[in-house]
């Protein structure tokens, strides 16, 4: 019997729960592996997928969202060896899984902590309820490719947002493997969309897209690019999380600030009954 040829993997994009190649047909080499090089039309498709997922995901109960995210954590744990095989330190994989679980726990707690009943001068209930912003564009950080990625995706989706993530150009393999984890969990297609390639090429399309509601620029290292992205984002008043001034220690307790960055507060009045 002849020697077996191993199946060689091409790392593809993750859009709407599927794994398409780039519309442009391009790819680039990372660690001797072909990885799809996303184009602006892939950004367009990803935003469409993310938008169509908003209704179902934000409409799901907080408890249900939490359960789905816990399920994703189970799958993440199950792929531990595969992530380590990509060259990630075991400690980082474990912290990333724990981080996912930590954010998942917030799903049914955000409303109590950040919402409230406000005292008003009249016979009304006045209630503030945090709501998701909608579609969030994320430029993932290049350092700490799994933990950093989990730390920007999980807080955005836990409250009911959907995301289009531009994975870090030098380290896309953990991102696509995370996509495989999410595709095999119960997360609805389109809630997380991951594009690999050059953020400098695709991020401007995401930043200027009128159907994107918020932008997380954590992974943008180039100061000039960050400024131009923020200017493009102003076109439809996107919420923007700026790149950090100093490098982030991803292993430290993140606190809920990344969740609250993509929340909007809805205040409702309701007359008190007799």
């Amino acid at each position: 019997m002849s020697e077996r040829l191993a199946v060689r993997k091409t790392y593809k994009l993750f859009i709407g729960g599927r794994f398409p190649r780039s519309e442009s047909g391009r790819s680039y080499l990372v660690e001797n592996t072909n990885v799809a090089l996303a184009s602006r039309k892939d950004v367009r498709d990803a935003v469409v997928a993310a938008r169509s997922a908003v209704k179902g995901w934000s409409g799901a109960t907080a408890y249900n969202r939490g359960q789905i995210l816990y399920r994703a954590a189970e799958m993440l744990e199950g792929r531990r060896d595969q992530f380590i095989g990509l060259g990630l330190p075991a400690a980082e994989v474990d912290v990333a899984t724990d981080r996912w679980v930590w954010y998942a726990g917030w799903a049914d707690k955000i409303a109590q902590v950040y919402g409230g009943a406000n005292p008003v001068a009249g016979p009304y209930f006045n209630l503030s309820a945090p709501e998701p912003t909608g579609v969030v564009g994320v430029v993932a950080p290049g350092e700490s490719p799994l933990l950093g990625l989990v730390s920007v995706i999980a807080p955005a989706i836990v409250s009911g947002n959907t995301v289009v993530v531009l994975a870090a150009e030098p380290a896309p393999l953990p991102a696509v493997t995370l996509a495989e984890v999410l595709a095999t969990s119960d997360l609805p297609g389109g809630v997380v969309n991951i594009l690999t390639g050059r953020a400098a090429e695709t991020a401007p399309w995401l930043a200027s897209h009128l159907d994107v509601n918020a932008l997380d620029l954590t992974g943008v290292a180039d100061q000039a690019l960050a400024v131009s992205l923020e200017q493009a984002a102003a076109g439809n008043l996107k919420r923007v999380v700026r790149p950090p001034a100093a490098p982030i220690d991803w292993t430290a307790d993140p606190g809920p600030s990344r969740i609250t960055a993509f929340l909007e507060t809805k205040t409702v009045w309701h007359p008190k009954g007799v």
Partner: peptide, 9 residues
């Protein structure tokens, strides 16, 4: 405009 539009507009 060179910018992707959305159904909000």
């Amino acid at each position: 405009t060179g910018v992707y539009s959305g159904p909000d507009y």
